[in-house]
């Protein structure tokens, strides 16, 4: 009984809070994300075309683009620029691979004061670690399923 009344009060309160909370300006945020995300991809496209014009094969060009984009993301993070882009662009600078670099470099820099092994070395993955865990694990599952399907289809 007591518990039910308590939950009721909590529900009423949460509705009251919902009414007071200002919403993020969704349209502005979405436009910023779209434009910045699109521009970052265009930078990637520029390097892709550039490397292709050097005669690098279509299969390998991804490696080059990824390396360059990661470097750019890392460098802008080091200069202290990337967080300012992120403030406006939101997902526009988080979702591209430069954002992945940012999520590795920013804790690496931040935890330098706790030492190079347990600071930089281990904290580097506090944000990006889960991305690798879930990305790699799910790709392994995909590979296994593909293998099984292939075997069964034979």
């Amino acid at each position: 009984m007591e518990k039910r009344k308590e939950n009721e009060i909590k529900n009423i309160y949460q509705q009251m809070v919902q009414k007071k909370v200002p919403q993020s300006s969704l349209i502005k945020d979405a436009i910023f994300a779209f434009v910045v995300g699109g521009l970052i991809c265009d930078v990637g496209q520029f390097f892709m075309n550039l490397f292709l014009s050097f005669g690098i094969s279509k299969d390998d060009v991804g490696y080059y683009v990824a390396t360059v984009m990661v470097f750019l993301g890392a460098f802008l993070t080091g200069l202290g620029v990337y967080d300012n882009i992120g403030k406006y662009a939101g997902a526009g600078s988080i979702v591209p691979i430069t954002g992945f670099a940012n999520s590795i470099v920013s804790p690496a820099m931040e935890y330098k004061r706790e030492g190079y092994i347990f600071g930089v070395g281990s904290k580097m993955f506090v944000i990006a670690g889960p991305i690798l865990v879930y990305g790699i694990s799910s790709s392994i599952i995909v590979g296994i399923i593909y293998y099984l399907v292939k075997v069964l289809a034979r």
Binding site: A66, V70, A74, G78, A101, I104, V105, A108, K112, M124
Partner: peptide
Amino acid sequence: AGIAAAVFFGYIMALLFN
């Protein structure tokens, strides 16, 4: 390439910048 670059440049940037 992406993963190795992120780890390597991450370390370098941590050395260079605060």
